[in-house]
Amino acid sequence: MAEFYTLQNARDWQLDPIAATDIETRLASYGFDQHTVSMEVYVQAREAFSIFEALLNSTQLRRLLLLKELNNFRRDRSERIFPRQPAQEGLSPTEISLTARR
């Protein structure tokens, strides 16, 4: 029940200027200002922020691993289609290509 009233007060604070003034007056009488309320919200949500950050980091890691795997797949595929010729010592790239045509 308390959660319901808290949510209702938060919505009133956001949408109704008269209610916002009343709520801010009540908070000020207890020694709370906007900064204190914001910091308390952050402290209470810190665990959720940590979980969200961990999820973002793991997603980024999976994305990088997938890109690396795709790059390896493309490189392997291109090497099967166009196999590399072993380098012949003392020949220039032009001479190697001419030798490969014979």
Results as ranks from 00 to 15, higher is better:
T94P: 00
E3Q: 10
R26L: 10
R63V: 03
L65I: 07
M39N: 13
A45Y: 08
R80V: 05
S97V: 05
A100Y: 08
S92V: 00
F73L: 13
I51K: 15
R46Q: 12
A87C: 05
Y30V: 05
T25G: 03
L67S: 14
L56A: 10
N72C: 04
T25N: 09
M39W: 07
A48L: 10
L27E: 05
Q85W: 03
K68A: 15
R26T: 04
L98S: 05
K68N: 14
A20G: 02
A54Q: 15
L7S: 09
I51L: 13
Q60P: 00
A10S: 12
E95A: 10
L61T: 11
S78I: 10
A48N: 04
F73H: 06
A54T: 15
L64K: 15
A20L: 03
A10H: 05
S38K: 10
G90F: 03
V41N: 01
T21I: 12
L98K: 12
E40C: 04
T6V: 12
Q44F: 09
R75D: 07
N71E: 14
R84Y: 06
Q85V: 08
G31Y: 02
E24G: 02
Q44D: 07
T6W: 08
R102W: 06
D22N: 08
R62K: 15
F52C: 04
Q8D: 07
R11S: 08
V43Y: 12
L27F: 12
E69T: 11
S58W: 05
Q60H: 09
R77V: 06
G90V: 04
K68R: 15
I18S: 10
F73R: 14
T36K: 10
R26Q: 13
R26N: 06
Y30D: 11
M1D: 15
M39F: 07
W13L: 10
V41H: 01
E3N: 09
H35D: 05
L27D: 02
S92E: 03
L64N: 13
F4A: 08
G90W: 03
I96Q: 07
L55A: 09
Y5K: 09
F73V: 02
F4Q: 12
T21Y: 04
A45R: 14
K68W: 06
D76C: 10
E69K: 15
T25Y: 09
L67E: 14
R101A: 07
Y5T: 02
M39Q: 15
L64T: 11
D16Q: 11
A48I: 02
D76H: 11
S29R: 15
D16G: 08
D12T: 01
E53W: 06
L61W: 00
A100R: 14
V41I: 09
S29M: 13
N9M: 11
R74Y: 08
S29Y: 08
L70N: 06
T25E: 07
L91E: 03
T94F: 08
R62W: 04
A100S: 12
F32Y: 15
R80G: 09
E69V: 07
R102H: 10
E40K: 11
S78H: 01
S97C: 06
S58T: 12
T25V: 05
D76R: 15
E79H: 04
S50G: 14
R11D: 06
A87L: 13
Y30M: 14
T36N: 02
T94H: 08
L55I: 06
Q34F: 06
L55E: 14
R101I: 01
A48K: 07
